[in-house]
Amino acid sequence: MKHASSTGPRSAAGRALATSERGVMRSVLGVVIELLFTLAAVCALYIVWQMWWTGVEAEHAQVETRQSADWVDPAAGGDEVAIAQPQEGDPPVQPEGAAEGDLVAEIYIPRFGDQWVRNIVEGTSQEQLNRHGMGHYETSQMPGELGNFAVAGHRNGYGQPLADVDLLQEGDAIVVRTQDYWYVYRYTTFTIVTPDQVEVVAANPENPGAAPTKRMITLTTCEPKYTTATKRWISYGELEYWARVSDGVPAELTSVDETGAVRFINNEQPSVVSRLGSLQPVVVVALLAYLVIFIAAAIVWRWPVLREIREGARPKPDVSIYGGLLRHQPGVLPVRVLLLALLLVAAAAALLQWGYPWLAANIPFLQAMSNYVTV
């Protein structure tokens, strides 16, 4: 009896200690798992920023540029459009010159989708390509000019204008529109080169140094698509005809509906997200909504979970990052979940708007991977 009574308390104390140790280990493991999931979410959100949000910002900038340009919209009425007929003679050259960042042309490639359109601005710096679509090599010829109208564009991120360049087929239309003229090129072939092979954008890429004999277009982009770009994918096209914008739209950019009416295929309005252009309003609205709901819930319900834990009506929970955040919100469970969701939305939007651009601008390997520059 003495033996049993002497070991009983020690056994109970040992079991309590073991239970406590298991609780600590469970809490530590839980926090580690939460941190790993958080890190995975942050990395996934970085990919979202790189692949999607940079494209939204680029589309916003391009729409603003097109809207500010004093260019006539040949399909502004939304009704049937006229087909611009090919013109005879040498094409006019437009523009004759441009400063860096100026809108040179718009480019339509139906193979990439009916609604696909990108701006071409002067210059091929990362700043121009990241925010303004595609850039014209300043040393190459202008649209319609004898020689090579050479442009560059990203294949990944920032709207990835040339993401599907490998889908082009011989004879595909590449339509360039300047302020007053259409230039319809036909895709001919492609080649893959190293970055130092700059002759691909020469006036006569087929015979560098010789006088040009054709009116060409060259599209340059990165290769491979999703990893470090060690080469360049070069696509060539040759001018088939030119037309006047005042006469309508090239047949390559039209379709015929069930009534027989001719429509401009690129007729969708910019997306709602691209009109936003910045996630700062999302952050502000989420935080304001959080503040209003937080105050209302604190007045009506206070903190029922914390009260129950203090009073012993609810067992003390394990340490948890998100569990702790959820418990410290006022109100009933649905309200607390909503409050936590608003905080997470604000945090995610802040990362997309400010966090990832800062990281991509200041961490060398991220900068190299994302081609990011501060604009």
Rank of each mutant, 00 (worst) to 15 (best):
F190I: 04
T178C: 04
V332F: 09
I265Y: 01
G123C: 10
D102N: 07
A152Y: 00
S235Q: 11
C222F: 01
T54D: 04
G55T: 07
P270Y: 08
E106H: 09
L287K: 00
E170Q: 14
L338I: 13
G323A: 06
T189E: 15
T65K: 15
Y108I: 03
T227Q: 12
V193S: 01
G324T: 10
V24D: 01
T374G: 06
L279K: 02
L29K: 11
G331C: 08
A350G: 09
E80A: 15
I120S: 05
E59W: 08
A296E: 08
Y137C: 01
I217S: 07
A44T: 11
W358D: 00
D166F: 02
Q353K: 00
W52V: 14
P250A: 08
I120E: 03
R310H: 06
V28L: 15
W116V: 11
L325F: 15
L279E: 01
T259F: 09
L333P: 05
E106L: 13
E64M: 14
R314Y: 05
W358Q: 00
D172M: 10
L306K: 09
F190D: 14
L129E: 11
L325Q: 06
W303A: 06
F37C: 13
R302S: 13
L219S: 06
P95N: 08
R263M: 11
G23L: 09
V117N: 01
V24F: 14
D196E: 15
E127M: 00
L276V: 03
L219R: 04
R10D: 12
T194F: 12
H328D: 07
G324L: 07
V32F: 11
T124Q: 08
T188P: 05
G153S: 12
P143E: 04
Q197S: 11
G209W: 01
M216K: 14
A61F: 00
M51G: 07
R10F: 11
G97F: 03
S6F: 10
A18W: 09
P315H: 13
Y290D: 08
A261H: 06
G331P: 04
V373G: 05
G355C: 03
A296Y: 13
D180C: 03
Y241W: 12
G55C: 12
L103W: 05
A296W: 14
A251M: 06
G277D: 08
Q67S: 12
I265E: 09
R177W: 02
E59R: 13
R10E: 12
A152E: 10
A360T: 02
V305K: 07
T227I: 05
Q169T: 12
T54F: 05
R186C: 01
A84M: 08
W233P: 00
L279M: 15
A173C: 03
W52F: 14
W303I: 03
L279A: 03
R186S: 12
